[in-house]
């Protein structure tokens, strides 16, 4: 399943880029993420509890950042598996200056397997989009908070 979209994050490109490389920020923004533990260069073990309406499931997996080209682009790979299925997302994130901050465009491929793929077809794409949107909403919030603390410090 191909997914594309773009979101605006407050603040300059360098800062948006740095936020996106920060495991603490990623952990905070990824829906249901309960923690990222560094296991290698730009690679983290992930624990996640996904809750969506009545559906809930625990996932364990990995987050990896590659092809870093600061502050323009990088690849983000997220994979997780649990009892209800498995998810693998691989996307290119491209950052460009935009009105009101930085535009982050993603172009990715999401693969879903197991029960969620077998019985959730009606909703898989809608859900994936929603989760990505939640991620960027939180990222934007994190960027705003950061900007607010910076201005307070100024």
């Amino acid at each position: 399943m191909k997914l594309t979209g773009s979101y605006t994050v407050p603040g300059p490109r360098e800062r948006a880029y740095a936020l996106l490389q920060d495991p603490a920020v990623l952990a905070q923004c990824m829906p249901g993420c309960e923690g990222l533990d560094r296991i290698g260069e730009n690679e983290y073990a992930m624990r996640m509890k996904m809750t969506l309406a009545s559906i809930s499931g625990r996932f364990e997996g990995k987050v990896r950042i590659s092809d870093a080209n600061p502050p323009e682009s990088f690849r983000l790979m997220v994979e997780g598996s649990g009892k209800i299925g498995f998810v693998k997302g691989d996307g290119l994130l491209t950052l460009s200056p935009a009105h009101g901050g930085t535009s982050v465009r993603f172009e990715g491929d999401v693969q879903v397997g197991g029960t969620i793929a077998n019985v959730g077809q009606r909703l898989v794409e809608t859900t994936a989009r929603m989760l990505i949107k939640r991620f960027f909403d939180k990222l934007a919030a994190a960027a705003s908070v950061l900007r607010a603390t910076e201005s307070a410090a100024d």
Binding site: A53, S54, I55, S56, G57, K83, I84, T115, I116, V119
Partner: peptide, 14 residues
């Protein structure tokens, strides 16, 4: 009508 089918599929695990 939504919850029980999800529970039977073990997608909902309350």
């Amino acid at each position: 009508m939504s919850l029980v089918p999800l529970m039977k599929l073990r997608l909902a695990l309350p």
